[in-house]
C-alpha cells in the first residue's frame, strides 16, 4: 500500500503532489489533536465517576505541588530580582522609579507567574508523569489494570488532572508573591526605592481582574500540561520513531516540548481575550 501511494504521488501533477504532501502531515496532526482531546475529555469525565480518587489525588498533589515548591520559590525569587533590576534601570531614565512596584507586580501576576510556573512544572512534574506512565505502558502494567476491569485513564490520568488543577494556581500564587518580594529586595533593599511607594503602587495598580486572569491561565496550563504529558506516556507503545525504553525517552522529550509550545500559544490566546 505505501508503495502504491508513492507511485501515485510520483505520477500526479505538481499541485496535486503539493496538496498530498501537505495533506498527510495535516491529517496526522489533526488525528493527534483529536486523540489528545478525547483523552482529556475521558480524563475529565472520570473525575466524577471514579471511586477512591481522593487518595490518589492527594498523592499527586504531593508530587506535583509540594515537591515542586522549592524550585518555584527559587525561580520566583530570582525572576522578581531580575525584573526589579531591569525595571529600575529602565524607569530611572524616565524619572519614574516609583512605578517599579506596578511594573514588577503586574508582569508577575499577569504573565511571568503563570507561564514560568507552568514551564517549570512541565520540566519537573510533567516529564516524570510521562516517564512513569510510559514505563507502566511498556511493562504491561496498564494492560494489567484494564484486565482487572480498572479503567486505566480513571486510575492514572484523572487524579493527576485534579491535582494539577489545584496545584498550578496555588504554585502560581506562590511564584507571584515570591517574585514581588524579589523585586522588593532589589528595588527597596539594594537600590533604595521608597518602600511605601513600592508597596502602594502594587496595591493601587493590581486589580482582581489581573489576579483572576493569572489564575485562569494557570488552570488552563495545568489542564494542558497534564493532558499532554499523560497522553504521551499512555501512548508511548504506539510511537513510530522508537520502541521500548527509548520510546519512553522520546515520549518524555515530546511531552516537554509540546507542553511548552502549547503553554506559550495558549498564553497568547488567553492574553488576547483577557486584555
Amino acid at each position: 500500500m505505501p508503495q502504491r501511494n508513492a507511485d501515485d504521488i510520483s505520477r500526479a501533477s505538481p499541485p496535486v503532489k503539493v496538496l498530498r504532501l501537505l495533506g498527510r502531515p495535516a491529517l496526522r496532526a489533526l488525528n493527534a489533536m483529536g486523540s489528545v482531546t478525547l483523552f482529556m475529555l475521558d480524563g475529565l469525565r472520570h473525575i466524577f465517576t471514579t471511586r477512591r480518587i481522593l487518595g490518589r489525588t492527594v498523592r499527586q498533589i504531593y508530587v506535583i505541588g509540594y515537591q515542586s515548591l522549592f524550585v518555584i520559590l527559587l525561580i520566583g525569587l530570582f525572576c522578581g530580582m531580575v525584573l526589579g533590576l531591569q525595571g529600575y534601570y529602565t524607569l530611572v531614565r524616565f524619572g519614574s522609579v516609583g512605578m517599579l512596584g506596578s511594573a514588577v507586580s503586574l508582569t508577575m501576576i499577569r504573565e511571568l507567574g503563570p507561564v514560568l510556573t507552568a514551564i517549570m512544572l512541565t520540566g519537573r512534574a510533567g516529564s516524570s508523569m510521562t516517564a512513569e506512565i510510559g514505563v507502566m505502558r511498556i511493562t504491561d502494567q496498564i494492560d494489567a489494570l484494564d484486565v482487572m476491569d480498572i479503567n486505566s485513564v480513571a486510575y492514572l490520568v484523572s487524579p493527576r488532572i485534579v491535582a494539577a488543577l489545584l496545584s498550578f494556581p496555588m504554585l502560581t500564587a506562590i511564584f507571584d508573591v515570591t517574585g514581588i518580594f524579589g523585586g522588593y529586595l532589589t528595588g527597596v533593599c539594594m537600590l533604595d526605592i521608597n518602600e511605601g511607594a513600592y508597596l502602594y503602587r502594587i496595591v493601587s495598580s493590581v486589580t482582581m481582574t489581573d489576579v483572576a486572569g493569572g489564575f485562569l491561565k494557570a488552570l488552563v496550563f495545568g489542564l494542558l500540561v497534564t493532558t499532554v504529558c499523560c497522553h504521551q506516556g499512555y501512548k508511548a507503545h504506539l510511537r513510530r520513531d522508537s520502541v521500548g525504553p527509548e520510546a519512553v525517552g522520546s515520549a518524555t522529550t515530546s511531552a516537554v516540548v509540546i507542553s511548552c509550545v502549547l503553554i506559550l500559544a495558549a498564553d497568547y490566546v488567553l492574553t488576547s481575550i483577557l486584555l
Binding site: 504491561d140 494492560d143 494489567a144 482487572m148 476491569d149 480498572i150 486510575y155
Partner: peptide, 21 residues
C-alpha cells in the same frame, strides 16, 4: 514479568481488584 504496579506493595497489588471494585 508479573506486571505489578511499582508504586504499591505486594499486598496492595494483590488486593487491587478488591480495593477498586
Amino acid at each position: 514479568d508479573g506486571a505489578l504496579l511499582g508504586a504499591l506493595t505486594l499486598a496492595q497489588n494483590v488486593a487491587l481488584p478488591l480495593t477498586e471494585h
